[in-house]
């Protein structure tokens, strides 16, 4: 693996801060929300936000394709499933050492849980952060919950998953 910047430690906070700033600014202007897009589609047949999410999928493929063509060394596993004997293997970085079936089950449980709670609370994690930046105190408590939840996941849930999932 080799990227354009070789000594990364100092620039990571700066680059991610700029990235977050751009996304946060545009998300506030456009009301972007992944779960909200699906909700508007199902409940009101509105497609505005849903097309935003579709554009994200298309844009990520396009972006990876363009930069893979320029700097192939930075994208060693693009296009991942084309090089796998089992097309359901997740890309490296998922909780390690589980069987394919476990990853499928975890994806279904995790996705379904995010979807149902997200729609009942009015937005996906990004939308909640943007809403708390707009002054919504309820969303601020949601963000505080994600911070506490991250610690809970790594102190208990993760071990539990590795204990019970094959």
């Amino acid at each position: 693996m080799s990227s354009l910047i070789t000594s990364t430690a100092l620039v990571i906070p700066i680059i991610t801060l700029i990235l977050g700033f751009i996304i946060g600014y545009l998300a506030q202007r456009s009301g972007f929300c992944s779960i909200g897009g699906l909700r508007d589609l199902f409940m009101f047949k509105h497609t505005r936000l849903f097309f935003g999410y579709l554009a994200l999928i298309a844009g990520s493929f396009l972006g990876y394709f363009i930069f893979w063509a320029i700097v192939p060394t930075a994208f060693p596993n693009f296009y991942w499933l084309a090089n796998q004997t089992d097309p359901l293997t997740p890309i490296p970085g998922a909780p390690g050492g589980l069987t394919t079936l476990s990853y499928v089950v975890l994806a279904i449980i995790g996705g379904f849980g995010m979807g149902i709670i997200g729609v009942l609370l009015g937005g996906c994690p990004l939308r909640q952060i943007v809403m708390s930046a707009e002054g919504n105190v309820k969303s601020l408590f949601f963000v505080a919950g994600t911070i506490v939840g991250a610690i809970i996941f790594h102190t208990t849930i993760m071990q539990l998953v590795q204990l019970i999932m094959p």
């Binding site: 975890l106 849980g113 995010m114 709670i117 994690p125 949601f142 919950g145 994600t146 991250a150 996941f153």
Partner: peptide, 10 residues
Amino acid sequence: GIAVINFALL
């Protein structure tokens, strides 16, 4: 928030 991030990290 706690539930959503745990589902997400799963």
